[in-house]
């Protein structure tokens, strides 16, 4: 065996395989979250029922849970009843829960809420400007914002109940 060829081959192949291996370990669809630890972008959005505007600025001092969802999204339907249930526990303790419609129509969302329950306001985001401000790449995405308006946690996909509760407990 020609050890020189083996050594040269190893020098070329090993870093290449290492790069590929590190890439294979990641989900190519996962969008990195860069907003954690940064101030949450402000918004003033009208509720799905209409006539009321909720602004993030007015909610300072209390943790906020912001859930982007859509009626056409299957994981949202799985997650929503749990969020409704958990909101009943945390809202009395001062946590504000808000839903934001992502690329969907209000009547369809109303049907979704009738089916899966409603315990907190849902906001309209007609041009998805707020979703883009929050770096939303798909739904569901859930943000936990502390009383100072900093994003402390972002959940891509359905929230993990344990992490969700432990994050909120740390804020209360």
């Amino acid at each position: 065996m020609n050890w020189r060829i083996v050594a040269v081959g190893a020098v070329i192949i090993v870093p290449f395989v290492a790069v590929l291996a590190s890439g294979f370990g990641k989900d190519p669809r996962e969008v990195p979250s860069v907003l954690e630890g940064h101030p949450a972008p402000d918004f003033a959005l009208e509720t799905a029922e209409g006539g009321q505007v909720i602004s993030l600025k007015d909610l300072r001092g209390h943790p906020v849970v912001l859930n982007f969802y859509a009626s056409w999204c299957v994981p949202c339907a799985q997650e929503h009843p749990w969020l409704v249930k958990i909101s009943k526990i945390y809202q009395p303790r001062g946590v504000t829960f808000l839903g934001v419609i992502y690329n969907d129509e209000v009547p369809k969302v109303k049907g979704f809420l009738r089916r899966y329950g409603q315990n907190y306001p849902t906001l309209q985001d007609p041009s998805s400007a707020t979703a883009i401000d929050y770096g939303v790449a798909g739904v569901p995405e859930t943000y936990i914002i502390d009383g100072q308006g900093q994003i402390v946690r972002k959940f891509v996909g359905p929230v993990s109940p344990e992490e969700f509760e432990s994050t909120l407990e740390a804020l209360l």
Partner: peptide, 24 residues
């Protein structure tokens, strides 16, 4: 906004959102 207000006043149902809501 007026329609929204009217509906909000008419509604007064139990499922009304409980979050802090600014008046329109």
């Amino acid at each position: 906004s007026w329609c929204g207000l009217a509906r909000a006043q008419d509604g007064a149902d139990a499922s009304a959102p409980t979050a802090a809501v600014t008046e329109p």
